[in-house]
Design a protein around this nucleic acid. Structure first.
Length: 271
DNA sequence: AAAGCGCCCTGAAGGC
DNA sequence: TGCCTTCAGGGCGCTT
């Protein structure tokens, strides 16, 4: 379930423990992630120095001198930094062991996560090159949403979940952002006004930023064995609240499947 | 080009 | 108690 805020919190959690350290050993226990883990991963990484951990969309970028490891948490993946001798548990698919006994352990029950190695500019990698702007950067605003959506009949909720339009808006925050902006999720993207898109872009920023701030305070230490809470205990206005009263007006929250995913909204606060 | 949907996978929840 | 079914979810990639 990691959405962008969880991925960013993970990045902030593990980076201080690993940056500027040397990879001593790599253990791959299960190559069958979304894509097979590269066979040469251990050979590639061992001896490499980690310069920095960055994030693009929901991908974590481990920048080494000779290339970049792209890691996606899928929907059930999480990372911890633990002593290398810690016995592996179920679904512990990958260890990257750094000097100073810092073992980065990747656990992913559903194996929707992935690991890629790329040399050169990682933004040119096939998985990254077509991605839209980062929602928290200055490169993102409502005007872009407006321009890109003209003549598109797709529901606005699906439109903002398209990573080519803007990255990092997952299913939960899509519903939450639309609630904040007062826009019904089922409306055609091409029928949303410029002013509404300005509100929506701002709502997306707000929702993600709040979640990141919350992550910083609620997530446990990434160096603890039980270091991941999975989900932030966010104050959700509509998501997973079908039939419950709107926190603003008391109207029953409605739910509908859109693009094979549950969507929630308040029929009174959103128009 | 845009839209729709299948699929990868496990675990939790619900029904019987 | 235990089995079976259903659902959840990110996002690529194929089809229409």
């Amino acid at each position: 379930m990691p959405e962008l805020p969880e991925v960013e919190t993970t990045r902030r959690g593990v980076a201080p423990h690993l940056e500027h350290r040397i990879v001593e050993k790599v253990i791959v226990r299960h190559r069958g992630l979304r894509w097979p883990v590269p066979r040469a991963l251990a050979r590639t990484l061992e001896g490499e120095r980690l310069n920095a951990i960055e994030r693009r969309a929901k991908y974590l970028l481990f920048r080494f001198a000779s290339g970049t490891l792209l890691l996606h948490l899928g929907m059930s993946g999480h990372l911890r930094v633990i002593p290398a001798a810690t016995p592996p548990g179920k679904h512990d698919h990958l260890d990257i062991i750094f000097d100073g006994d810092r073992c980065l352990r990747f656990n992913d029950p559903r194996r929707f996560g992935s690991v890629h190695w790329t040399t050169g500019d990682p933004s040119a990698h096939a998985l990254l090159e077509r991605l839209g702007p980062e929602p928290l950067s200055d490169a993102f605003d409502g005007d872009q949403l407006f321009e890109k959506s003209r003549r598109r009949k797709l529901a606005v909720k699906l439109f903002i979940m398209n990573a080519a339009i803007v990255v990092g808006v997952g299913n939960i925050y899509a519903s939450e952002a639309l609630f904040l902006a007062g826009i019904r999720p089922g409306r055609a993207a091409g029928r949303i006004t410029r002013i509404e898109y300005a509100r929506l872009a701002e709502a997306i920023r707000t929702v993600l930023q709040k979640a990141i701030a919350k992550g910083g305070t609620t997530l446990r230490d990434f160096t603890q064995p039980d270091g991941n809470t999975g989900y932030f205990s966010l104050h959700l206005n509509v998501y997973d609240r079908a039939g419950e009263p709107c926190r603003t007006c008391g109207t029953e929250i409605r739910q509908k499947v859109m693009g094979q995913r549950s969507t929630y909204w308040c029929p009174s606060c959103q128009s």
